[in-house]
């Protein structure tokens, strides 16, 4: 039996987004699904200019696994650009590094520092409708 897949650790919760080509050139319905760990890898390696070793440590996987994920992610983005497909960043099997809260009124996310107490209200809109992510 194969070893079960390690769950990836994200540092900040990511937002679900879809990137679409404009109406004229896009192909309706066809899309490429980018998994959250692939999105996070692209963000760490290409946006924050990290080495693969550093990025792998943050995601909690080995360096070769990260390099493979990075390769997959780049291929998917290229496919979306060349074949004019929508790029869908999905939610999937990931775990957050620490506890995050979400306000259901303004949809903002926030955490609590180590020495802080549990928040009673949202720091932006002061709504009390908050819950754990």
């Amino acid at each position: 039996m194969a070893r079960p897949i390690k769950i990836r650790k994200l540092i900040t919760p990511h937002k679900k987004v879809v990137f679409k080509p404009d109406v004229k050139s896009g192909r309706n319905g066809s899309k490429v699904i980018l998994l959250p760990d692939e999105y996070e890898t692209i963000k760490l390696v290409d946006y924050e200019n990290m080495h693969h070793t550093q990025a792998a440590k943050i995601l909690g996987v080995s360096r070769p696994t990260l390099t493979r994920t990075y390769e997959k992610a780049r291929r998917k983005i290229a496919e979306s650009l060349v074949e004019l497909k929508a790029l869908d960043v999905e939610e999937g099997r990931t775990v957050l590094g620490d506890l995050w809260y979400k306000c259901s009124n303004c949809e903002s996310l926030f955490n609590i520092p180590k020495n802080g107490t549990e928040p009673g209200k949202c720091p932006l809109c002061f709504s009390k409708l908050i819950g754990e992510l």
Partner: peptide, 29 residues
Amino acid sequence: TVISSNFGAAVKEEFDKNNVRIVIMSDKF
């Protein structure tokens, strides 16, 4: 408390060390 829509890994680590609360605002703002 720091408010923005996107934080990098190094920044997040630095704020965590110094007990600063991070708020990720939604696209409504």
